[in-house]
Amino acid sequence: MLASCADPSVLEGLGWLLCYLTSGTHIAFYWSFVTVLVLLAVTAPVALAFGFGGAVAARSSIWPISLLGRGYMAMVRGVPDIVFFLFFVIALDQGIEWLTHQVRCPDWTDPVRQGLEFRVCPQAKVPPGNAPQVWHQIYGFGLAVITFALVFGAFAANVLLGGMQAVPRAQLETAEAYGMTQRQVFRRVLVPQMWIYALPGLSNLWLILIKATPLLFLLGVRDIVYWARELGSTKTSVYAYPHPDWRLYYFLALLVFYLCMTRVSEILLGRLTRNLSRGQATAAGEAQRKAAGGVA
């Protein structure tokens, strides 16, 4: 905070706005944008890993594993995402507490579900009741990441399975004819080639993931939507910076933030598609080859 902001009541015009926008709560607001970016940065690889695992499991020749993979992919279809988000967080939270309860308090006799309440022994509270506030926030954020990764992993599994199936059979058969084992075929031929087929679906999923981040607000994380509502609401003269209801402007700022994220992602993903298409046996790869003056 700037030194000139010590007494906001005497400020006017641009100076007031400058001080207002650098107040402590606004700094927290700016940090919440970082929260969203961190969520994206953490969730995307984890969801991709879940999706990869799901797709590999669904392709497995052992049917219980295949069933598990297919069940995971089918899970999130047909049901509104928001139901999953609300359900998973509570279910995960209670599941974790129930497990720690079983481990730490084996001789606890009261039932865990007492009518309307879910009650575990005090030692099994996650995070512990006396932990500092920051741990509660980190725990909530962690739950959110797992929920996002689980739901988006199921969608990524769908896309990756489609990509794996789109790799031309001849490629795999050629690799087998060279004497590669199944594992080698998978690692050296299938996986490197599947990305270009999976990329349109994955790009779409990334754009959807960006637009899903306001749901953090529903999960109780203090994200940008929370702060926009908090800061924008009417402030009476008891506050240092009184102002009328400015929520509209805060939400417009969020809108611009999301539109910029979408636009930048579209441009970067377009470049990635061009790079990955190079030398591939797809229409885009063929067009690049012709444009570069290759033999027709």
């Binding site: 939507v225 509502r229 509209l248 939400f251 417009l252 809108l255």
Partner: peptide, 10 residues
């Protein structure tokens, strides 16, 4: 390009 959630709020 923007979340429906934000559109509702605005």
């Amino acid at each position: 390009g923007s979340p429906l959630f934000i559109q509702f709020f605005i």
